Amino acid sequence: MEHEDAVGRRVYGTDHDDPSPGPRPGRIYRELLGGPLDGQLFDVTDWMPEDLFTGALLLAPLGMYGPGGRADYGPHEDDPFGPWIWGGDTP
């Protein structure tokens, strides 16, 4: 996802009181769809190409398992370069 498409969106991992929680120019993001992090952007700029196909377990304090729980997000098989889809929560 290019920066221009994501203006006004919150990037995963930014503090809630961050005055600029949105995307930064020159960075590459995946939109997170579904689950506790729905609508946030995840920065994958420094990821190896093969790692983009596996997704990530992201800390999700508002998920099913509360603080310390994680949400599983990964690419949809029909669109490996598109948004990452929520696959569920894990402790």
Rank of each mutant, 00 (worst) to 15 (best):
R30F: 07
G22I: 08
Y12S: 09
T45L: 01
A60Q: 06
Y29D: 05
E50R: 08
A56F: 10
L59M: 13
D5G: 00
L37S: 05
G55I: 01
G88Q: 06
S20A: 13
G68Q: 03
F81E: 11
P21H: 00
R70A: 13
G88H: 07
L33E: 12
M64P: 10
G13R: 05
P61A: 07
P91V: 08
H16N: 15
V11M: 06
G22E: 12
G26A: 09
E2M: 06
S20C: 07
W84Y: 11
P19H: 00
D18C: 02
G88K: 08
Y73M: 13
L57F: 13
P80T: 07
G68V: 04
I85E: 12
W84K: 05
E2N: 14
F42G: 01
P21A: 00
A6Q: 12
Q40L: 13
Q40P: 09
G39T: 06
D89C: 12
P19N: 00
P25H: 06
D15A: 15
Y65L: 04
D51P: 05
H76I: 04
V11W: 07
G35S: 06
M48P: 11
D72L: 10
Y65S: 03
Y29P: 02
L41W: 13
G88S: 06
G26T: 08
P19E: 04
D17M: 02
Q40M: 14
A60I: 05
P19L: 01
P61K: 04
E31Y: 00
G68K: 00
A6L: 14
F42D: 00
L41R: 09
L37Q: 05
I85K: 00
G88L: 09
P83C: 13
D38G: 09
R70M: 15
H3A: 08
Y73A: 12
D46G: 04
W86E: 04
R24P: 02
G82K: 02
D38Y: 00
G13L: 12
R27Q: 11
M64Y: 14
D51W: 12
Y73V: 13
E4W: 09
H76D: 15
T54I: 14
Q40D: 11
D78T: 15
L33S: 10
T90S: 14
W47L: 11
P75E: 11
G34D: 03
A6D: 12
L58S: 10
L32Y: 02
L62Q: 15
G35L: 02
